[in-house]
């Protein structure tokens, strides 16, 4: 159905190569997230798959068929854009029906599909409104509806939640995940937000400067980041990266320890420092610890309510088995 393969794909804008030769396979039914900082080429990659940009060289296969030079509409893919890209002069119903009308489908079938999509997405009451009269979340649903009715081989999402406020974003995240559970269709999702990547993906592709840094399941990336970039990018708060004697003692150039893998005590511990800012969330407590002699700030996460505050002297003990070791080249080694 929706297996997508990129084979030595490159993309250049003029003399600038934004994607060096890249190989990637996305299995049928998989929820794949492209994640990376802005400008890393993740959106360009998505647009290459969509056919909105021509590849400079290489091959794109969809369902084992060469799709490299197939126009976007013929690839059987549907896309949800960051700005939703709804047609402002059409009602919600006509927006959702548009791809079906373009496919010259008969009216009865169009109505059936539009109505069932509207039901799935709770848009029944809004079908005769214009996009301008809808809230951000509703517009997002219309955009998804327009994608669903085509019953595509794969869905492409280009940062679809970045225009929503925080509360709605969490809700829509769940809705998209549920949609994937129900449809079991291949989805490719682009975001710069690693939380979205971690919560939604079957497979995460971490990109930097057009290069794939690592591919894997969320927990693989969390447990065994392949290099310093992935280590720093995946996980929140960020992994603490420490250089110098403590790293050398463990035979590495750099060591990394996640905030949740450090134990905080009043009494003796491996390291010590002074609490700068303490963030008490109730469920967790975050300490930003200074004067440790390790790095400028060490972030520590303690479960539940822990009563240290600004200025307190505390002791830190990392879990030795969860320390990540990196060489001078930035690569992980065991």
């Amino acid at each position: 159905m929706g297996r997508i393969t990129l084979d030595n794909v490159t993309k250049s804008f003029g003399p600038v190569q934004v994607i060096p030769p890249l190989n990637l396979t996305i299995e049928d039914g998989e929820f794949t997230v492209f994640v990376g900082p802005s400008g890393c080429g993740k959106s360009t990659l998505l647009r290459l798959i969509a056919g909105l940009e021509d590849v400079s060289s290489g091959e794109i296969r969809i369902d084992r068929q060469d799709a490299t030079h197939v126009p976007p509409a013929k690839r059987g893919l549907a896309m949800v854009f960051q700005s939703y890209a709804l047609y402002p002069h059409m009602s919600v119903r006509r927006n959702i029906a548009f791809p079906l009308r373009m496919a010259k489908m008969d009216q009865a079938e169009i109505d059936r599909r539009v109505n069932s999509a509207a039901e799935v997405l709770n848009l029944g009451d809004y079908l005769d409104r214009r996009p301008g009269q809808l809230s951000g979340g509703q517009r997002q649903r219309v955009a998804i509806g327009r994608a669903i009715v085509r019953e595509p081989a794969a869905f492409l999402f280009d940062e679809p939640l970045s225009n929503l406020d925080a509360a709605l974003r969490v809700g829509m995240r769940l809705e998209i995940s549920e949609l994937h559970e129900r449809l079991r269709t291949t989805m490719i999702y682009v975001t710069h937000d690693q939380v979205e990547a971690m919560t939604m993906a079957d497979k995460i592709v971490v990109l930097r400067a057009g290069v794939i840094e690592q591919v894997g399941s969320p927990l693989e990336l969390y447990r065994t980041p392949r290099n310093l970039f992935v280590a720093g990018f995946i996980g929140s708060p960020r992994m603490n990266l420490i250089e110098g004697p403590e790293a050398e003692r463990r035979g590495a150039h750099t060591i990394g320890i996640r905030p949740e893998h450090i134990e905080v005590t009043e009494g003796p511990g491996a390291w010590s420092g002074t609490v700068g800012v303490a963030e008490h969330l109730g469920s967790d407590t975050f300490f930003h610890v200074h004067e440790t002699g390790l790095a400028e700030t060490i972030t520590v996460r303690a479960g539940g309510e822990v009563g240290f505050d600004h200025g307190d002297r505390i002791h830190l003990t990392p879990r030795e088995d969860l320390i990540h070791r990196f060489g001078a080249d930035g690569l992980r080694f065991e």
């Binding site: 126009p71 509409a73 893919l77 896309m79 854009f81 700005s83 890209a85 047609y87 548009f98 791809p99």
Partner: peptide, 18 residues
């Protein structure tokens, strides 16, 4: 007129004329 809307139309299978 945002470019994304035109791209959406292209993805939706509209020919240049449509």
């Amino acid at each position: 007129i945002p470019g994304e809307i035109l791209e959406a139309a292209r993805m939706d299978g509209a020919t240049l004329r449509e």
